[in-house]
């Protein structure tokens, strides 16, 4: 393990990373959110979903630096007396859980379909790629919105909707790389060695098509957080009992113009921050990893 760490520290990737300010900022933001969703709930004062911990008297408190703010609630409270900061911590967990899970699901499904399409070609390839083309001709938010209005709200339904728009990009990337790799002689060598197709795909093709997916997967988490926020804001996303960052914005939206801006604006800022961080990191990875695709 230490040898691996040493190799990473000596690598060109790390060397360039240390000289790339936006990559460092991006990864710090991502790290901050990682910390927030893992240990955050033990740091914030309140569990916003435990009704017993809510004080209705403390409702609509402004942030601590404004008149009437209380040091107990740094970013203020909402109409039920929920701490906005605590809501953001819990909401980020839901948003990122959905983003990450949907990304992993899309990646698994898309990679499998891309490998099959690229390796076997023919009719299977045509069918898979035509479905992907149709999928791509609609904006993903629109497709997800349509699916959600058919399914109804719920975390697992959001996941299904996101995965059904998210697999396409993996399928296309993997198919392209698979076509390129299967032309190479090491695949022919594997055939000459007598390997069955399943082993050729898993042992030889798969490891060589994964690198470009790192970039796609990173940026997709950000995209999914945004789509989920849009769905929840429109009221077809997560249920009210599990408010994500998007739902928090919606909850505060009704009172936004009565001067109670903090309930919506802070969750909005956090969405912006996380997507910004993920994209900075993704851009760096794209620049670093793509030239090595040859």
């Amino acid at each position: 393990m230490t040898a691996l760490a040493q190799r990473f520290l000596a690598s060109e990737l790390f060397h360039n990373y240390r000289r790339n300010a936006s990559a460092i900022i991006g990864s710090l933001i991502v790290l901050f959110f990682a910390g927030m969703i893992t240990i955050g709930p033990w740091v914030v004062a309140q569990d916003p979903y435990d009704v017993a911990q809510l004080e209705l008297l403390d409702s609509f408190k402004p942030p601590v630096w404004l008149e009437g703010g209380s040091p107990q609630y740094w970013l203020g409270t909402d109409g039920q007396g929920r701490d906005v900061l605590a809501s953001i911590v819990y909401g980020s967990r839901i948003s990122l859980f959905i983003g990450l899970t949907a990304m992993i699901g899309s990646c698994l499904i898309g990679t499998t379909l891309g490998l099959l399409a690229g390796f076997y070609g023919g009719r299977l390839d045509s069918v898979i790629m035509r479905i992907a083309d149709i999928q791509l001709s609609f904006p993903s938010v629109l497709t997800a919105l349509f699916l959600m209005s058919a399914f109804g709200t719920g975390v697992e339904k959001v996941l299904i909707a996101l995965i059904s728009v998210g697999w396409v990009v993996y399928a296309r990337t993997v198919r392209g790389s698979t076509l390129r790799e299967t032309q190479k002689e090491y695949i022919q060598a594997a055939r000459v060695s007598g390997l069955p197709n399943a082993k050729i795909i898993l042992r030889h093709v798969l490891p060589n098509v994964l690198t470009p997916l790192i970039v796609v997967a990173t940026i997709q988490v950000g995209t999914f957080v945004l789509i989920e926020a849009s769905l929840s804001f429109l009221g077809v996303g997560v249920p009210i009992t599990k408010p994500s960052l998007g739902l928090l914005i919606k909850n505060g939206f009704d009172v936004l113009f009565s001067g109670l801006w903090w309930i919506s604006v802070f969750p909005g800022l956090f969405i912006m921050l996380i997507v910004f961080g993920i994209n900075l990191l993704g851009d760096f990875l794209r620049d670093e990893l793509n030239p090595r695709l040859k």
């Binding site: 190479k184 002689e185 090491y186 022919q188 060598a189 594997a190 000459v192 060695s193 007598g194 042992r203 030889h204 490891p207 060589n208």
Partner: peptide, 19 residues
């Protein structure tokens, strides 16, 4: 396959880079 094997042209493309 045990009786007949092959050596390829391109020393870069004929070995799996991840093995």
């Amino acid at each position: 396959r045990k009786k007949m094997q092959m050596i390829f042209q391109d020393p870069y493309a004929s070995l799996n880079p991840r093995q």
